[in-house]
Amino acid sequence: MEFLLRVWRQAGPDAPGGFEEYRARDVKEDMSILEMLDQVNQDLVKEGRDPIVFESDCREGICGVCGLVIEGVPHGEPKKTTTCELRMRHFREGQTITIEPFRAGALPIIKDLMVDRTALDQLIQSGGYVSSRTGSSPEANTIPVAKQDQEEAMDAAECIGCGACVAACPNASAMLFTGAKVSHLAKLPQGRPEAARRVTAMTGRMQELGFGNCSNHYECQAVCPKDIHVKFISRMNREFIKALFKKKN
Protein backbone atom coordinates (compact mmCIF):
# COMPACT_ATOMS: atom_id res chain seq x y z
CA MET A 1 0.00 0.00 0.00
CA GLU A 2 0.99 3.60 -0.49
CA PHE A 3 -0.06 6.69 1.41
CA LEU A 4 0.56 10.41 1.49
CA LEU A 5 1.25 11.54 5.05
CA ARG A 6 0.61 15.07 6.34
CA VAL A 7 2.60 15.15 9.56
CA TRP A 8 2.92 17.95 12.12
CA ARG A 9 6.59 18.89 12.54
CA GLN A 10 7.73 21.19 15.32
CA ALA A 11 11.38 21.56 16.36
CA GLY A 12 10.73 22.33 20.02
CA PRO A 13 8.13 23.40 22.60
CA ASP A 14 8.19 27.06 21.59
CA ALA A 15 9.20 26.67 17.94
CA PRO A 16 6.60 27.35 15.28
CA GLY A 17 5.22 24.16 13.74
CA GLY A 18 3.65 23.16 10.47
CA PHE A 19 2.58 20.25 8.33
CA GLU A 20 5.03 18.45 6.09
CA GLU A 21 4.17 15.84 3.50
CA TYR A 22 5.82 12.45 3.20
CA ARG A 23 5.13 9.54 0.93
CA ALA A 24 4.90 6.13 2.65
CA ARG A 25 5.71 3.36 0.15
CA ASP A 26 5.65 -0.45 0.41
CA VAL A 27 3.37 -0.39 3.42
CA LYS A 28 1.95 -3.79 4.40
CA GLU A 29 -1.67 -3.79 5.47
CA ASP A 30 -0.82 -5.67 8.69
CA MET A 31 1.63 -2.98 9.80
CA SER A 32 0.60 -0.73 12.64
CA ILE A 33 0.63 2.98 11.94
CA LEU A 34 3.74 3.23 14.17
CA GLU A 35 5.55 0.58 12.11
CA MET A 36 4.62 2.53 9.01
CA LEU A 37 6.13 5.67 10.61
CA ASP A 38 9.25 3.65 11.57
CA GLN A 39 9.64 2.77 7.91
CA VAL A 40 9.20 6.38 6.81
CA ASN A 41 11.76 7.41 9.45
CA GLN A 42 14.28 4.88 8.15
CA ASP A 43 14.04 6.49 4.73
CA LEU A 44 14.37 9.96 6.28
CA VAL A 45 17.50 8.88 8.19
CA LYS A 46 18.99 7.37 5.02
CA GLU A 47 18.43 10.70 3.27
CA GLY A 48 20.12 12.46 6.18
CA ARG A 49 16.89 14.20 7.25
CA ASP A 50 15.48 14.59 10.74
CA PRO A 51 13.17 11.64 11.58
CA ILE A 52 9.63 12.25 12.84
CA VAL A 53 9.57 12.17 16.64
CA PHE A 54 6.75 10.16 18.24
CA GLU A 55 6.46 8.14 21.41
CA SER A 56 5.83 4.43 21.87
CA ASP A 57 6.77 1.68 24.26
CA CYS A 58 5.00 -1.66 24.60
CA ARG A 59 3.29 -1.56 21.19
CA GLU A 60 0.64 -3.94 22.46
CA GLY A 61 -1.91 -1.48 23.74
CA ILE A 62 -1.25 -1.59 27.47
CA CYS A 63 1.37 1.00 28.37
CA GLY A 64 -0.39 4.22 27.38
CA VAL A 65 2.67 5.86 25.88
CA CYS A 66 1.70 6.11 22.23
CA GLY A 67 -0.92 8.58 21.13
CA LEU A 68 -1.37 10.41 17.84
CA VAL A 69 -4.32 12.23 16.40
CA ILE A 70 -4.97 10.41 13.16
CA GLU A 71 -7.39 11.92 10.67
CA GLY A 72 -8.84 14.12 13.40
CA VAL A 73 -9.38 11.36 15.98
CA PRO A 74 -7.01 10.51 18.86
CA HIS A 75 -5.81 6.90 18.38
CA GLY A 76 -7.62 6.88 15.00
CA GLU A 77 -11.18 6.12 14.08
CA PRO A 78 -11.55 2.43 15.08
CA LYS A 79 -12.96 2.18 18.62
CA LYS A 80 -11.16 0.82 21.68
CA THR A 81 -7.74 0.99 20.03
CA THR A 82 -4.44 2.53 20.94
CA THR A 83 -2.36 4.10 18.16
CA CYS A 84 0.06 1.15 18.17
CA GLU A 85 -2.82 -1.26 17.57
CA LEU A 86 -4.17 0.67 14.60
CA ARG A 87 -3.42 -1.32 11.45
CA MET A 88 -2.91 0.13 8.00
CA ARG A 89 -5.74 -2.02 6.60
CA HIS A 90 -8.15 0.51 8.17
CA PHE A 91 -7.04 3.08 5.58
CA ARG A 92 -7.80 3.32 1.87
CA GLU A 93 -5.01 2.71 -0.62
CA GLY A 94 -3.48 6.01 -1.69
CA GLN A 95 -5.27 7.97 1.06
CA THR A 96 -3.84 11.15 2.57
CA ILE A 97 -3.40 10.58 6.29
CA THR A 98 -3.18 13.64 8.55
CA ILE A 99 -1.22 13.01 11.76
CA GLU A 100 -1.15 15.60 14.56
CA PRO A 101 0.05 15.55 18.15
CA PHE A 102 -2.38 15.62 21.09
CA ARG A 103 -3.51 19.21 21.53
CA ALA A 104 -4.12 20.59 25.01
CA GLY A 105 -2.67 23.50 26.93
CA ALA A 106 -1.82 21.13 29.78
CA LEU A 107 0.01 18.70 27.47
CA PRO A 108 2.60 20.87 25.66
CA ILE A 109 4.44 19.59 22.61
CA ILE A 110 8.04 18.49 23.21
CA LYS A 111 8.88 17.82 19.57
CA ASP A 112 6.85 16.91 16.47
CA LEU A 113 4.23 14.41 17.67
CA MET A 114 5.54 13.93 21.19
CA VAL A 115 3.77 15.69 24.05
CA ASP A 116 4.68 16.19 27.69
CA ARG A 117 2.16 14.32 29.84
CA THR A 118 3.66 15.28 33.21
CA ALA A 119 0.39 17.01 34.10
CA LEU A 120 -1.37 13.63 34.20
CA ASP A 121 1.26 12.32 36.65
CA GLN A 122 0.88 15.47 38.76
CA LEU A 123 -2.84 14.85 38.83
CA ILE A 124 -2.28 11.33 40.20
CA GLN A 125 0.27 12.68 42.69
CA SER A 126 -2.38 15.03 44.09
CA GLY A 127 -4.44 12.12 45.44
CA GLY A 128 -4.81 9.21 43.05
CA TYR A 129 -3.43 6.67 45.51
CA VAL A 130 -4.09 4.99 48.86
CA SER A 131 -1.80 6.41 51.53
CA SER A 132 -2.13 3.66 54.15
CA ARG A 133 0.69 1.16 54.38
CA THR A 134 -0.60 -2.12 53.07
CA GLY A 135 2.44 -4.34 53.49
CA SER A 136 2.71 -7.39 51.26
CA SER A 137 -0.33 -8.74 49.43
CA PRO A 138 -2.97 -9.87 51.90
CA GLU A 139 -4.57 -13.29 51.98
CA ALA A 140 -7.27 -13.45 49.31
CA ASN A 141 -10.77 -12.55 50.52
CA THR A 142 -9.67 -11.20 53.91
CA ILE A 143 -11.62 -8.06 52.99
CA PRO A 144 -14.82 -9.13 51.23
CA VAL A 145 -15.68 -7.00 48.17
CA ALA A 146 -18.97 -7.47 46.32
CA LYS A 147 -18.40 -8.81 42.82
CA GLN A 148 -20.31 -5.93 41.25
CA ASP A 149 -18.20 -3.33 43.09
CA GLN A 150 -14.99 -5.13 42.27
CA GLU A 151 -15.89 -5.32 38.58
CA GLU A 152 -16.87 -1.68 38.41
CA ALA A 153 -13.65 -0.65 40.17
CA MET A 154 -11.65 -2.72 37.70
CA ASP A 155 -13.50 -1.19 34.74
CA ALA A 156 -12.35 2.22 35.99
CA ALA A 157 -8.86 0.95 36.81
CA GLU A 158 -8.35 -0.10 33.20
CA CYS A 159 -7.19 3.46 32.39
CA ILE A 160 -3.67 3.36 30.94
CA GLY A 161 -3.18 7.13 31.26
CA CYS A 162 -2.59 7.75 27.57
CA GLY A 163 -4.32 11.14 27.66
CA ALA A 164 -6.51 10.57 24.59
CA CYS A 165 -9.52 11.75 26.63
CA VAL A 166 -7.81 15.11 27.16
CA ALA A 167 -6.78 15.25 23.51
CA ALA A 168 -10.28 14.46 22.24
CA CYS A 169 -12.05 16.86 24.56
CA PRO A 170 -12.81 20.18 22.83
CA ASN A 171 -12.12 21.76 26.25
CA ALA A 172 -8.99 19.71 27.01
CA SER A 173 -10.62 18.49 30.19
CA ALA A 174 -9.13 15.61 32.19
CA MET A 175 -12.47 14.54 33.65
CA LEU A 176 -12.48 10.97 32.37
CA PHE A 177 -8.91 10.36 33.51
CA THR A 178 -9.59 11.84 36.97
CA GLY A 179 -13.07 10.32 37.20
CA ALA A 180 -11.68 6.86 36.47
CA LYS A 181 -9.10 7.12 39.26
CA VAL A 182 -11.52 8.63 41.79
CA SER A 183 -14.16 5.96 41.01
CA HIS A 184 -11.69 3.08 41.00
CA LEU A 185 -10.43 3.87 44.50
CA ALA A 186 -13.79 5.01 45.93
CA LYS A 187 -15.38 1.70 45.00
CA LEU A 188 -12.90 -0.40 46.97
CA PRO A 189 -12.64 -0.67 50.78
CA GLN A 190 -8.93 0.29 50.68
CA GLY A 191 -9.63 3.58 48.94
CA ARG A 192 -12.96 4.50 50.52
CA PRO A 193 -11.69 6.19 53.74
CA GLU A 194 -9.77 8.82 51.75
CA ALA A 195 -12.43 9.28 49.05
CA ALA A 196 -13.49 12.80 50.12
CA ARG A 197 -9.95 14.09 50.49
CA ARG A 198 -8.97 12.50 47.17
CA VAL A 199 -11.79 13.96 45.09
CA THR A 200 -11.29 17.42 46.57
CA ALA A 201 -7.55 17.38 45.96
CA MET A 202 -7.71 15.92 42.46
CA THR A 203 -10.49 18.18 41.15
CA GLY A 204 -8.67 21.21 42.57
CA ARG A 205 -5.37 20.16 41.02
CA MET A 206 -7.04 19.53 37.67
CA GLN A 207 -7.99 23.21 37.54
CA GLU A 208 -4.50 24.38 38.59
CA LEU A 209 -2.81 22.30 35.90
CA GLY A 210 -4.80 24.08 33.20
CA PHE A 211 -7.21 21.37 32.13
CA GLY A 212 -10.57 22.63 30.90
CA ASN A 213 -14.08 21.99 32.16
CA CYS A 214 -16.42 19.19 31.17
CA SER A 215 -19.21 20.08 28.72
CA ASN A 216 -20.54 16.51 28.58
CA HIS A 217 -19.59 16.13 24.91
CA TYR A 218 -18.51 12.54 25.71
CA GLU A 219 -15.77 12.64 23.06
CA CYS A 220 -13.45 11.19 25.74
CA GLN A 221 -15.42 7.97 26.05
CA ALA A 222 -15.57 7.62 22.26
CA VAL A 223 -11.78 7.62 21.87
CA CYS A 224 -10.79 5.81 25.09
CA PRO A 225 -8.78 2.72 24.09
CA LYS A 226 -9.98 1.02 27.26
CA ASP A 227 -13.63 1.96 26.76
CA ILE A 228 -13.92 3.78 30.09
CA HIS A 229 -17.47 5.02 30.53
CA VAL A 230 -18.49 8.60 31.34
CA LYS A 231 -20.56 7.24 34.23
CA PHE A 232 -17.27 7.41 36.15
CA ILE A 233 -17.24 11.20 35.64
CA SER A 234 -20.73 11.23 37.08
CA ARG A 235 -19.55 9.12 40.02
CA MET A 236 -16.72 11.60 40.61
CA ASN A 237 -19.29 14.42 40.61
CA ARG A 238 -21.28 12.46 43.20
CA GLU A 239 -18.17 11.91 45.32
CA PHE A 240 -17.49 15.65 45.05
CA ILE A 241 -20.97 16.49 46.39
CA LYS A 242 -20.53 13.97 49.22
CA ALA A 243 -17.19 15.61 50.08
CA LEU A 244 -18.86 19.04 50.24
CA PHE A 245 -21.12 17.81 53.03
CA LYS A 246 -18.47 15.85 54.87
CA LYS A 247 -17.03 17.36 58.07
CA LYS A 248 -13.41 18.35 57.74
CA ASN A 249 -11.19 16.18 59.93
Partner: peptide, 25 residues
Protein backbone atom coordinates in the same frame (compact mmCIF):
# COMPACT_ATOMS: atom_id res chain seq x y z
CA UNK B 1 -11.65 28.82 30.57
CA UNK B 2 -12.27 26.10 28.00
CA UNK B 3 -10.92 28.20 25.16
CA UNK B 4 -7.83 28.89 27.31
CA UNK B 5 -7.36 25.17 28.03
CA UNK B 6 -7.17 24.35 24.31
CA UNK B 7 -5.09 27.14 22.82
CA UNK B 8 -4.36 25.30 19.55
CA UNK B 9 -7.15 23.50 17.70
CA UNK B 10 -6.70 20.49 15.42
CA UNK B 11 -6.17 21.15 11.74
CA UNK B 12 -8.46 18.21 11.11
CA UNK B 13 -11.08 17.32 13.66
CA UNK B 14 -13.84 14.76 13.54
CA UNK B 15 -16.33 14.56 16.36
CA UNK B 16 -17.29 11.05 17.40
CA UNK B 17 -19.96 11.66 19.96
CA UNK B 18 -20.58 15.39 20.45
CA UNK B 19 -23.69 16.51 18.62
CA UNK B 20 -24.68 19.98 17.44
CA UNK B 21 -26.51 20.63 20.73
CA UNK B 22 -23.55 20.09 23.05
CA UNK B 23 -21.22 22.06 20.81
CA UNK B 24 -23.50 25.10 20.61
CA UNK B 25 -24.58 25.37 24.26
Amino acid sequence: ENSQAKPVRYAKSRYQEAGPASRTM
